[in-house]
Simulated assay, not measured.
Amino acid sequence: MVEEIERKILMLSLKPWLDPRELARALDGWDPREVADLEAAGLVWTPRLVCKLLRAFKKAETAWEFFCWVACRPGGFAHDRHTVARMVAILARAGHVELVERLLAKVRADGILLPFATVRLVIDFYGLSKKADAATRVFREVESICGPISRPNLALLCSSLLRTMAKCRRALDAMDLLEEMMARGVLPDLQTFSGLMEHLAGAGDLKGVHRLLGLVRQCELQPDGYMYSVLVRAYCKRERAALALRVFDEMRAAGVAPDAPTKALLVKSLWREGKLREAALVEERCEDVASGLPEASPGHVWTASAADLKKVLDIYSGCFAQLAAQAGTG
């Protein structure tokens, strides 16, 4: 009796199963013979299985062919918001603007609303493929794609579009969008300002940097250490060490300590421009340069700051302190 049960368990464990990644790899070229075999397999397609297969395809073109093919299968399968959202994101990442717009028009006609996260992904992906105009159209039509959105979500979407415009070197359009959103009462956060400011500073656009700093003050935001360091680097890069020193003084007056690289760059620039006394004063006043958390996470200037990292640190350190206290009382 025991042997019979073990045999049945073994048979159950050896049942054939479907690996979406292997299936997608086999269909990578979308060869007619492979498609015929897929049709003959008689698979029961579900939105979950279709999403897994779409994610497994290496080429957006193959994913699109499968997306269209599976919609025509007998058995009543119909794409839902999840499969459409997956396909839209894949096409946007590959820069297929026309296909994305055709698909968005179709789901609008069918009354399907996509998740807000998908719209933001599309705008972010258009930054990779340098499609700023397409990203702007999606931004303008967001409510017809995912329904009414809250003010915080609109601010997130604005940040994504600004980042995309920066990647596409459309700084003037980005500034116009920023002022438009501020007029509508949608105020970007400090990270968004810092990201755009760094882009303008990298392009040597000091006028744009000044304009952004004025908008920051207009929003009654207090620049953090990272924004100050962006300003100092921008002035030093254009050999305007006197202006960089003025920003440095303002930074110290606001109680924000500079980090070591920013201080070193300022001293070097002052020294190169012959301002030896000023360089010595900076060295003297910066003996306690910041050595803690970075003011921005590398690679995520637009989205992470020292304040964000400190919140995470406080959460974890608080948990450890609580565990230590419980162990001590136990």
Rank of each mutant, 00 (worst) to 15 (best):
V2Q: 11
V2C: 03
E3Y: 09
E4H: 06
I5T: 07
L14Y: 11
L14V: 01
L18S: 03
D19L: 04
E22K: 09
L23M: 15
L23A: 15
L23F: 07
L27D: 04
L27K: 03
A36P: 01
D37M: 14
D37L: 12
A41T: 03
G42P: 00
G42F: 05
W45D: 01
W45Q: 05
V50T: 13
V50L: 00
K52C: 08
K52V: 01
L53H: 10
L54A: 05
A56V: 07
A60P: 03
E61G: 03
T62F: 12
W64S: 06
W64A: 12
P74R: 11
H79V: 14
H79M: 13
T83C: 04
V84C: 14
A85H: 09
M87W: 06
A89Q: 09
A89W: 03
H96M: 07
E98V: 09
L99S: 06
R102L: 11
R102C: 08
L103R: 02
A105C: 01
A109Y: 01
L113S: 13
A117K: 10
R120Y: 01
L121I: 01
V122L: 15
S129G: 05
A132N: 09
D133K: 10
A134I: 05
T136C: 06
T136R: 14
R137P: 03
F139R: 04
R140E: 15
E141P: 00
S144E: 12
I145V: 14
G147S: 02
S150A: 12
P152L: 12
L157S: 00
T164P: 04
R169N: 11
R169K: 14
A171D: 08
D173T: 03
A174H: 08
M175D: 11
E179S: 04
V186M: 03
P188G: 04
L190N: 02
Q191V: 01
Q191A: 13
Q191K: 10
T192P: 00
L196Y: 10
M197A: 15
L200C: 08
A203T: 07
G204D: 07
L206Y: 07
G208V: 03
G208F: 00
L213F: 06
L221A: 06
M227T: 15
V230I: 15
V230L: 00
V230H: 07
Y235K: 02
Y235T: 00
R238T: 15
A244C: 01
L245V: 03
E250I: 03
E250K: 12
A253D: 05
G255K: 12
P261F: 04
L265H: 01
L266C: 10
V267E: 15
V267F: 06
K268H: 14
L270A: 12
E273L: 08
K275I: 01
V282A: 06
V282L: 11
D288M: 02
S291I: 05
V301M: 02
V301Y: 10
T303L: 08
K311P: 00
V312K: 09
L313Y: 02
L313E: 14
C319N: 05
Q322E: 15
L323F: 04
L323Q: 05
A325F: 02
Q326H: 10
T329Q: 14
G330F: 08
G330W: 04
G330K: 10
